[in-house]
Design a binder for these strands. Structure first.
Length: 157
DNA sequence: GCCAACGTTGGC
DNA sequence: GCCAACGTTGGC
């Protein structure tokens, strides 16, 4: 296990940072990931306690909106078994699940950090989320990037 | 709505 | 195993 920090995208129309912060345990199953690379990050590389940048995508104001942590290791994503779910996968069975998800606990809401802001910091230029054409919904964040981001993540009064 | 990027599918 | 076609993502 190498990575300890992650950026995780969510569409706020589906699950926003506010949705998670106001849910009973401040937790959400990261259901709906249907990309093997992202799944493998959750299955192989994530550990409880890993730091998470909560990112809103496909919305009016895309960017980092919160801090979170991995709260539980990967388990089968139950939406793959539900024929009424948009994430239903007919090739998945409970004996042979295809898709797994970790549980994420939201910690706090941060000021919105837009892509244009991230681009201003040389140390952050390598972030996958800034790469042209990047579509991966879960990406590793280096300790250097994580540390450089901290001053930007302090909640305003 | 546009479109670039990229993952997946399926015929061969 | 190749690769063209297709579908999806996601910023703009």
């Amino acid at each position: 296990m190498t990575a300890r920090f992650w950026l995780m995208k969510s569409e706020p129309s589906e699950v926003s940072i506010d949705d998670v912060l106001t849910s009973p345990q401040r937790c959400v199953e990261w259901f709906g990931v249907r990309n093997y690379q992202a799944r493998n990050f959750m299955m192989r590389d994530m550990s409880v306690g890993d730091g998470v940048l909560f990112y809103h995508s496909s919305c009016a104001e895309p960017g980092i909106v919160g801090l979170a942590r991995v709260a539980r290791a990967a388990e089968p994503d139950i939406t793959q078994f539900d024929p009424s779910s948009p994430y239903f996968d007919p090739k998945a069975t409970s004996a042979n699940p295809r898709w797994y998800c970790v549980k994420v606990e939201a910690l706090l809401k941060t000021p919105l950090i837009q892509l244009s802001t991230l681009r201003q910091y040389p140390v952050l230029q390598g972030m996958r989320v800034l790469a042209k054409g990047n579509r991966l919904s879960i990406t590793p964040v280096t300790p250097e990037e994580w540390n450089a981001l901290q001053p930007l993540l302090i909640p305003s009064a």
